[in-house]
Amino acid sequence: MSRISEVFDFPVDFSDFRIYTFADDEGLRMHEDFQSISPHVRLTFLVNAPQDVSRQVFGHFSYVFFLDEEPVEREFLPQNYQLAYADQNCNRTFQQWGETVIHSLCACFLCNSIPAFDAHDVASVMLEVQQHRLFFNIVPFDTSLMPPGGQDRSIFNRLLAVVFASPEWGICQDGLDKLDRCGYLGKWVIAGGAFHPYEERSVMLLGDLTGGNTSRAAIKNELLPGEAEALY
């Protein structure tokens, strides 16, 4: 449970420009500047970053996620991605949403519940997405994840689908069945499992949409027709 707490109990502050990183040997950390960051970090999260930040992060970190309150126009470099709070239409604050993004993505590396699910699986999605602006969502476990119109209608070009459960749940057969159904959501889907400290199970979806800048409301109608709200 200590590794789970290490990720999910880490406090974040979104009141200004912030830099957070995750590395295997250092865990999740906040930094005052780029010079203090280890070159071995796996994930870098830039919260409300200035427009000129892109060049400062080039070539240093595996994956850089810009967490923006609004979908700011940026000069994206390879392995740079944007997640926009405004796309989500959820009833949580920007900080609560961003905290969920950071904790969930770090847990994919540190708290994986399926031994075969590892950094190579995450990389196979992140290196093949066709857009820099990605869609992030966490939905209740019992959400129907079959796209309307049949199995041939993909919502994502590339999709990382991860079932989150407490260590008490583990990865049960119905969790594996849920991941199988996620396979119908994208043209290329990587499925995995990770632990979180909550009793309720959920499914994380991260990928690039086939519709490009299609609104979150439209995607929600496709993913969750008549279902519960996303959790975040």
Rank of each mutant, 00 (worst) to 15 (best):
G211F: 07
E227G: 14
C90F: 08
R153Y: 09
S166C: 06
L105F: 06
P197V: 01
I219T: 11
S54N: 08
V53D: 09
D121F: 06
F14D: 02
L231P: 10
I4F: 12
F58R: 13
S54Y: 01
K187W: 05
V125D: 01
E26K: 10
S154L: 13
A86G: 03
V12S: 02
G149H: 03
L231T: 12
R18Y: 03
N213Q: 14
F109I: 06
D208P: 09
L185D: 05
Y20H: 00
G207E: 04
F156K: 04
P115W: 00
A161M: 02
L43S: 00
Y85R: 10
L105D: 02
R133S: 15
I19V: 11
G183L: 09
F10T: 07
F94M: 07
L179M: 13
M146P: 01
G98N: 05
V101T: 04
E229K: 11
C106H: 02
S15I: 05
S113Q: 09
F17M: 11
F135Q: 09
R181L: 13
N221D: 15
L67M: 04
S202I: 08
R92V: 15
C172A: 15
R201K: 15
I102G: 07
G192N: 05
R55I: 14
N48K: 10
F8E: 03
I114S: 11
L43Q: 00
P148N: 01
D33C: 00
V7C: 06
L206C: 06
T210K: 15
H132D: 04
N91H: 12
T44M: 15
F117I: 05
K178Q: 13
A49D: 09
D152K: 12
I155H: 03
A217E: 15
Q88A: 04
E69Q: 11
F76W: 09
E73L: 10
V47H: 09
C182P: 05
N80P: 08
A119Q: 13
E99Y: 06
P148Y: 03
Q51G: 02
Q130N: 14
F195H: 13
Y81G: 01
C172T: 15
C108I: 00
V101F: 03
E70Y: 10
P115H: 02
V41F: 08
F109H: 07
G149I: 08
L77I: 14
I171Q: 14
G211V: 02
V125R: 02
L43V: 00
V189E: 07
V122M: 07
G150H: 06
Y184I: 07
P140Q: 01
L83N: 03
